Amino acid sequence: MKKIIWTCGVFAGLISVTWGVASEALVGDSLSLNTKLFLGYATMILAFSLIFVGVKNYRDTYNNGQITFGKALGIGLLITLIASTVYVVIWLVDFNYFASDYGEKYQAQAVAEMKASGRSAAEIKKQTAETAEMMGTYKSSFPFRVMFTYLEIAPVGIIMSLIAALVLKNKSKTATVNL
Rank of each mutant, 00 (worst) to 15 (best):
K3L: 12
K3T: 11
I4S: 08
I5R: 13
I5A: 03
V10W: 05
L14I: 05
S23L: 10
E24H: 12
A25G: 13
L31V: 09
L33K: 11
K36E: 08
F38W: 06
L39P: 07
G40F: 09
Y41P: 04
Y41H: 02
T43I: 02
L46R: 14
F48M: 07
N57S: 12
N57G: 08
N57H: 13
D60Y: 07
T61Q: 14
N63Q: 13
I67V: 15
I67T: 06
I67K: 03
T68N: 10
G70D: 01
G70F: 01
L73M: 10
G76W: 02
L78V: 14
T80P: 04
L81I: 10
A83S: 05
S84C: 03
T85G: 12
V89W: 02
V89A: 11
L92Q: 07
L92E: 15
L92R: 03
F98K: 10
G103V: 08
E104I: 08
E104G: 06
Y106D: 04
A108D: 13
A110H: 04
A112E: 03
E113W: 15
E113L: 13
E113P: 01
K115C: 07
K115P: 04
A116M: 11
S117R: 14
S120M: 04
A121I: 01
E123K: 06
E123C: 01
K125I: 00
T128A: 05
A129T: 13
M135A: 10
Y138P: 08
K139D: 10
S140F: 12
P143S: 09
M147F: 12
E152M: 11
E152I: 14
I153F: 09
A154Y: 08
V156H: 04
I163N: 02
I163A: 06
A165C: 05
L168A: 03
K169N: 12
